[in-house]
């Protein structure tokens, strides 16, 4: 696969969750992923974008940027916000940890991203924002049973 790159910017409104994950899935589709791989990508993007909306921009709307690069059979996706950042990243990444139990958040966001993608790196700076970088290797068509 030839290398490729895209960048998407949108406001942190919850109705952009669906829009943004569909755009990334459409970009990823040039790697000819299976439905399961595509669903993994959509779910991971949805988790990262939801975190940016609920936590990053808790105190007001802002801009979310998604960049995605295809190199070979691997897709890299970064979701960044310039929101409030995460105080305690270690705690935030623990399964079932949520700072918003009243909103019925399950605390599973980072666990979902880790499980459905091949790698996950989170960088956050207090008051400056958060960046989530994820990669997923899409198997070659010849490796797949179709």
């Amino acid at each position: 696969m030839e290398n490729n790159h895209m960048k998407l910017e949108f406001l942190s409104k919850s109705n952009n969750e669906s829009f943004s994950r569909v755009v990334v899935a459409a970009f990823a589709s040039q790697l000819d992923p299976t439905l399961e791989e595509l669903s993994d990508i959509k779910t991971a993007v949805s988790e990262a974008v939801t975190n940016a909306i609920i936590h990053g921009y808790e105190y007001g709307e802002g801009v979310i940027v998604i960049e995605s690069t295809i190199s070979g059979n691997t897709i890299e996706i970064t979701v960044s916000d310039s929101g409030k950042g995460i105080d305690n990243l270690e705690e935030a990444m623990e399964p079932f940890f949520t700072s918003k139990p009243n909103l019925e958040r399950s605390g599973m966001g980072f666990t979902v991203m880790e499980t459905f993608m091949d790698s996950l790196v989170v960088e956050s700076l207090d008051g400056k924002g958060t960046m989530v970088k994820m990669t997923k290797h899409i198997k070659n068509i010849s490796d797949k049973e179709r």
Partner: peptide
Amino acid sequence: TFMDSSGIGLIMG
């Protein structure tokens, strides 16, 4: 057709 961890939160509640 799609569910993320928000659905898990909804079911748990």
